[in-house]
């Protein structure tokens, strides 16, 4: 409770500072509206039904891209982390593709997949895949060999070796990669939606920017931050529920 109060104090202080700076006209108030105006814009957008639709569309895209990118990243990371032949073939390919900034692929995604859901999900997939691949590759390839030898010496079967030795040992690194990817998913999503869409949080940020509706634009930016925060907390909560022994390390991140 005390920790919650302390954290809330920081946010309240930030809001008061923002309101004061905006009201003192140090920065053009037309271009830097106070939080009271931004909140009022968010309320009216919610009541009109537009904001819930945008949030739903964006969250759906982020979740779909995140799940697909994570599955692919975990699979490729696991395979290349344990099987040398795959490592030799896959790792150079992945390393060549990894430095390409996903934002640079936005125009290509529009050409390939159009403006519909596929282009957004593809871009989030791409943004999520590489950090998850890196974390699962490193986590799995660096499992202490003594654990594996010890397990094999007692005649453990291959699937049990994975489930009871390799995955638990690699889990901390994998979870860190997955958690990093959550924020990346939202960053990429905003870029993808800004490039062209029918609805979504990133789409509204771009559209309101162009017609100078700064209060609404800032409202959607704040909303995007809130969505990222909620997604991160939800992930931590799910990890805690699924892996109770891991709770402490998740909270420490």
């Amino acid at each position: 409770m005390r920790q919650f109060a302390l954290r809330s104090t920081g946010i309240i202080f930030l809001l008061i500072l923002w309101e004061l700076v905006s009201r003192t006209n140090l920065i053009d108030p037309g271009l830097f509206p106070p939080p009271s105006q931004v909140i009022s814009a968010l309320v009216s957008l919610t009541l009109s039904g537009q904001l819930p639709k945008d949030v739903f569309a964006s969250v759906l895209r982020a979740v779909a891209g995140f799940v697909l990118g994570s599955i692919a990243g975990l699979f490729v990371g696991a395979v290349s982390g344990r099987i040398r032949a795959f490592d030799a073939v896959l790792t150079p390919v992945v390393q060549v593709l990894r430095p390409i900034p996903v934002i640079a692929l936005v125009p290509l995604a529009i050409v390939w997949f159009g403006l519909g859901e596929a282009s957004k999900i593809f871009l989030v997939f791409w943004g999520v895949f590489f950090p998850v691949w890196v974390s699962s590759y490193l986590g799995i390839s660096r499992v202490d060999k003594n654990y594996i030898w010890a397990a094999r010496s007692i005649g453990i079967r291959r699937e049990k070796l994975w489930l009871q030795v390799i995955v638990p040992a690699a889990l901390p690194t994998i979870i860190t990669g997955l958690r990093t990817s959550i924020s990346l998913a939202f960053i990429v999503l905003v870029a993808a939606e800004m490039a062209g869409s029918y609805l979504g949080v990133g789409y509204r940020i771009s559209a309101y920017h162009l017609v100078f509706q700064i209060d609404k634009m800032m409202g959607y930016i704040v909303l995007m931050g809130a969505l990222g925060f909620i997604a991160d907390r939800t992930f931590a909560y799910l990890v805690n529920r699924a892996l109770p022994w891991y709770q402490l390390s998740v909270n420490q991140d």
Binding site: P107, I110, V111, W112, F113, G114, L115, G116, A195, G196, S197, Y198, Y203, S206, A207, L210
Partner: peptide, 20 residues
């Protein structure tokens, strides 16, 4: 109609692939 916000250079690609 449905207006979709697009930067001018992206419109050609969007029209070509039938997104708009």
């Amino acid at each position: 109609v449905s207006f979709i916000n697009l930067k001018a250079p992206d419109m050609v690609a969007a029209l070509s692939n039938g997104s708009i």
